[in-house]
Simulated assay, not measured.
Amino acid sequence: MSHSLDAKTGVDEPVTVINTYTVPTGEADYFTEAYQENARIMSAQPGFVRSRLHRPLADASETRFVHVAEWTSGTALDRATGNPEWHASLQRLFDDPGLHITSEPASYRVVVELHPS
């Protein structure tokens, strides 16, 4: 499975990146720590709005984290994912012998939005 956004969004509207990371539960705390270097690099990129990494309340044999990041535009995200420092950090995360990660990233645009009435 891919661990990077392979395709450019090509859109100049806000986008959200949703990525699931699955790791053995015994590695979940370490993954949370290791993940932060990569997140720090992306948070410094122009167009970054915010990022959240979600962990399930109950663990199973594997823990599936859900990462949600918001960007001002797809073009800003496209530029950010071209950053060599980010690519190197991502490679270190996936090459870490203490982590066994699978990942499924994708970019989305909002098509329905609700607010409290």
Rank of each mutant, 00 (worst) to 15 (best):
M42K: 11
S103Q: 07
I41T: 07
M42E: 10
S2E: 15
P116Y: 01
E62L: 02
A106C: 10
R55E: 08
S89L: 02
E13R: 15
S73M: 11
E33G: 10
S51C: 11
W86F: 15
E13D: 11
H87P: 00
E70H: 13
R92W: 03
E70T: 08
F94N: 08
L5A: 01
A58E: 15
P97F: 09
W86Q: 10
W86I: 03
S73C: 08
L5H: 05
D95H: 10
S51R: 13
D95T: 10
F65G: 01
A58M: 13
G82C: 06
T9W: 00
M42L: 15
S51M: 11
H67F: 13
E70K: 08
S117W: 07
M1T: 11
D96L: 10
T81Q: 13
G82P: 09
A44C: 11
G82D: 14
M1K: 06
F31A: 04
S61C: 03
R52S: 13
E70P: 01
A7G: 01
A28K: 07
S107C: 12
S107P: 05
S107E: 03
E33K: 14
T22D: 00
A69D: 01
V111F: 13
N38R: 15
L99S: 05
G47D: 08
N19V: 14
S117G: 12
V15R: 00
T72W: 00
E85S: 09
P97V: 10
D6A: 11
V49P: 02
S51W: 11
D12R: 05
E13N: 08
D6G: 14
E37K: 14
E33C: 05
S51Q: 13
T16E: 12
A7N: 12
H54C: 15
G82H: 05
D59V: 01
L99T: 08
G82I: 03
D12Q: 09
Y30S: 09
A60K: 14
Y108I: 04
L99V: 10
V17R: 08
M42W: 07
A88V: 04
T72N: 11
F94A: 08
L53E: 06
N38V: 15
A28E: 04
L53H: 06
Y35C: 10
S43C: 09
Q36N: 10
N38W: 03
S107L: 01
T25P: 03
D78T: 09
N19I: 12
Y35W: 13
T72I: 07
L77C: 02
G82F: 04
N19H: 09
E62Q: 13
T72G: 07
V112I: 15
G47P: 02
